[in-house]
Amino acid sequence: MDTAKLKEWIGNSTESHDEITAFPVKALSATLDREDPAPVPGDALAPLWHWLYFLPLHRQSELGVDGHAKRGGFLPPVPLPRRMWAGGRLRFHQPLRVGETVSKKSTILDVNAKTGRTGSLAFVTVEHQYSGAQGLAVTEEHDIVYREEASPNATGPEPVAARTDEDWSREVVPDPVLLFRFSALTFNGHRIHYDHPYVTAVEHYPDLIVHGPLLAVLLLDLVRSNLPDATVSSFSFKGVRPTFVPQRFYVCGKRSLDGKSVELWIRHEGGALAMTATAELS
C-alpha cells in the first residue's frame, strides 16, 4: 500500500445538490417504529436524518464485488477489500428543513495507514458541509476504515464490558427486514447488510451486520424520545464492536448532571460494548 500516493487525494473535493423531500422522512419514521405526523414543508429534519439524502448513485457497472462503488474517483483507491463506517463527528448549526434545496461539499481531510491485530488498515477522513436556504446547517467528519480480506479462522476483538447505569434504554432485536429497509432508504448496496451467503462465505462474519449509521440514528432517536424539547448541537460516535443479526442489543443513554450532554452507547445482550457516542445539548 503506497500511503504517500494515497495521500495525494487529501484536499480532493466534490459538490452536489439535493432536495429534502418528505417521503424518506416518513419511511425512516416507519422503519424506527415512530408515530410521527406526516412531514410538511418547513418541518425541521431530525439530527442525522440528512443521511437520507445525497445518496450514492453509481451505475451498476461501476460497483465492485462487495456492492460498493469501485475504488478511485473521489475516494482514494485503497487496495484493501473490506470497507466499514468507523464513526464520525457532527455539528448541527441549524436545522435543514423539508422542502429545501441543500448543497453538500465533501472534502478528503486525511488518509493514514497502519498495521493492526488483523493486518493492514487504512483510514480516510472525509468532511461534509451541508448548507440550506439560511446557510451552513451541518458539518460532519466521517471516518472510513479499510481492512484486509478476512481469514476464515480469524477471531474478533476481545469484548469490552459496556456500562449498565443508563437512565433510558431501548431493546432492539435486528432482523434482515430492518437492515434491508435501512439499506434501501440510504441506497446502500454493501452486501454485508443483506446478502447472507456473501457476508458469511466471503467476508467470514457470522451473520448480517447492522449498519453503523443505523446504530447512530437509534442512539439519537433515544435522545429525541426522552428529551423531545432538547436541541442537539453536536454528536460524535465510534464503533467498537460489530453487531450482527439476530443479536439482541440495548440502546442506552445517561444525561449529564448539568443537563448539557448525554452519554450514549450500544450494549449487546451479553454485555459487550458495540458503540459509544456523546450528544451535546443547547
Rank of each mutant, 00 (worst) to 15 (best):
V40I: 13
L48S: 13
R34C: 08
H93V: 04
P41G: 11
A46F: 00
A69S: 14
R91L: 11
Q60L: 14
R71M: 12
L57D: 15
A38F: 11
H93M: 08
A86P: 02
G87D: 07
P77I: 14
A86V: 07
Q94H: 07
S29W: 10
R59S: 14
V40M: 10
G73R: 09
R83W: 06
K70H: 09
W51A: 12
P39I: 02
P81S: 08
D43G: 11
S29R: 05
R34E: 15
A86Q: 04
L52C: 11
H68A: 10
R91I: 13
L90M: 14
G87R: 01
V65T: 13
A38W: 07
K70V: 14
H68I: 07
Q94Y: 10
V65R: 13
L57Y: 07
D66F: 04
R82Q: 08
W49H: 15
L90S: 07
A44L: 01
P76L: 02
K70A: 07
G88A: 02
G88V: 03
P79C: 07
P95L: 01
Q94F: 01
L48M: 15
F54C: 12
G88Q: 01
D36I: 01
D43L: 08
A86D: 04
W85A: 14
L28Y: 04
G87T: 11
L75I: 02
V65D: 15
P81W: 12
E62R: 08
L80N: 10
H68Q: 13
H58V: 03
L48K: 05
M84G: 01
L52F: 03
G67R: 10
G73V: 14
G72W: 06
A30L: 15
Q94N: 08
Y53E: 00
W85N: 08
W85C: 06
L80Q: 11
P76H: 04
L32T: 04
L75M: 13
S61I: 12
G73M: 12
D43M: 13
H93C: 09
G87A: 05
G72Q: 09
L80M: 05
G42P: 15
L28W: 01
V40C: 03
G42R: 03
P76T: 09
H68M: 11
L57K: 15
L48E: 05
Y53W: 04
V65Y: 05
T31R: 01
W49I: 12
E62T: 03
S29M: 05
H68L: 14
G87H: 06
G72K: 07
R82I: 15
R34Y: 06
R91N: 12
S61W: 05
W51C: 10
R91D: 14
P81A: 10
S61N: 09
G73S: 11
L28R: 01
L90H: 10
P56W: 07
L90E: 09
D66L: 05
R82K: 08
A44R: 00
G67C: 02
T31D: 07
E35M: 09
G87C: 06
R89A: 10
V78R: 00
V78H: 02
P47E: 00
G42W: 06
L80F: 06
G88P: 01
G88F: 01
A38I: 12
R59D: 15
R91V: 15
V40Y: 04
R82D: 03
P79Y: 05
R91P: 02
L63S: 07
M84N: 02
G67S: 04
P47Q: 00
L55H: 09
D36E: 14
V40D: 05
H93T: 06
G64I: 10
L63N: 09
